[in-house]
């Protein structure tokens, strides 16, 4: 074991190819306890990275160490899986299971001890996600949001040291989303949580660390404050449409919010610099509508 690798997740030059297409390109990462938000547009490589972290995919090249173990070695991979919780994107559950049976099945696979201990754990996570009352309902009878919570419950079983959540809040109502945030916040005290999402507000609410992928490369790796700092001076609000070539949108009060990746100056004298949000910072980082990402921000 390399003593220098102090984080629970350590990736060094990890590349993953599907045939001729490169999904991950020399990714370096070091993640410790806490919630890390994984951002990036569709096809940026987020799900591939999550599957690599979940030991579901091997890296084509590079080094990975998860929880201090090497996932390319079968026995160590098994040990990693014992301490891993994974909520995949679009989980597809067997529809004829009841919620309880499904989680019991997962609990067996996660080696959660004898029947009584297993069932206690199933009940615990069902309560955590607010599905205890629907434990005898078949999966096919659950709503989309409920299925998402069920998937979350399966990932939470056994208090994993590394929790990988790929789009976990899709389909959750606002109340459930708050509940989810509280839950993840509590878990992140001791665990490493990687949250892959397009919901910037979830990242803003939960993550002390953000990793942004674009085209399979890490384009940002740092604290949310650092990302915001990079965006300062590039976000403006003012009356009227600033015209084409700039990323802008109309606000409810009729004014426009404008992102100016290339220039620190507003497009018109009436525009004033405002404090960027995380979403502004992200959009400035990766660019939108085919616009080139802001090199100045990167």
């Amino acid at each position: 074991m390399t003593t220098a690798l102090t984080g629970r997740v350590h990736l060094s030059g990890v590349t993953r190819r599907y045939g001729t297409r490169t999904a991950l390109d020399g990714v370096d990462l070091e993640l410790g306890p806490g919630v890390t938000g994984l951002l990036g547009r569709n096809g940026a490589g987020k799900t591939t990275l999550m599957r690599c972290l979940a030991t579901d995919l091997d890296a084509t090249s590079g080094r990975m160490r998860l929880l201090g173990l090497d996932p390319s070695r079968a026995p160590e991979r098994t040990d990693i899986r014992r301490r891993l919780g994974y909520l995949p994107q679009n989980p597809d559950f067997y529809p004829h299971f009841t919620a309880f049976a499904l989680l019991d099945y997962m609990a067996v696979l996660k080696e959660l001890g004898g029947r009584r201990a297993r069932h206690d754990e199933v009940r615990r996570v069902l309560r955590q996600v607010g599905l205890y009352d629907r434990r005898h309902s078949r999966v096919r009878r659950l709503s989309g949001g409920m299925r998402q919570r069920l998937a979350l419950a399966s990932a939470l079983m056994g208090d994993p040291d590394l929790l990988l959540l790929d789009e976990p809040t899709v389909g959750l109502d606002p109340e459930q989303r708050i509940r989810f945030r509280n839950l993840v916040s509590r878990l992140a005290v001791d665990s490493t949580v990687v949250l892959s999402t397009h919901q910037i507000e979830d990242v803003a609410a939960l993550c002390g660390h953000i990793v942004c992928l674009d085209g399979g490369r890490v384009v940002f790796d740092g604290a949310p404050g650092d990302l915001l700092a990079r965006a300062r001076g590039h976000v403006w609000e003012g009356p009227g449409d600033p015209g084409s070539g700039l990323t802008s949108w109309r606000l409810p009060d009729g004014r426009h919010r404008v992102l100016t990746p290339g220039s620190p100056l507003p497009p018109g004298t009436a525009f004033r610099a405002v404090e960027p949000t995380l979403e502004d910072a992200y959009l400035l980082l990766v660019g939108v509508s085919g616009a080139e990402p802001a090199e100045a921000v990167r």
Partner: peptide, 23 residues
């Protein structure tokens, strides 16, 4: 058959200590 369909069509549990062959 139903249990086999569960394993073949709904393999949501890829990252578990017991692999697909074991299941």
């Amino acid at each position: 058959t139903p249990s086999a369909v569960r394993e073949a069509r709904h393999p949501v549990i890829s990252a578990t200590p017991l692999g697909r062959t074991g299941r």
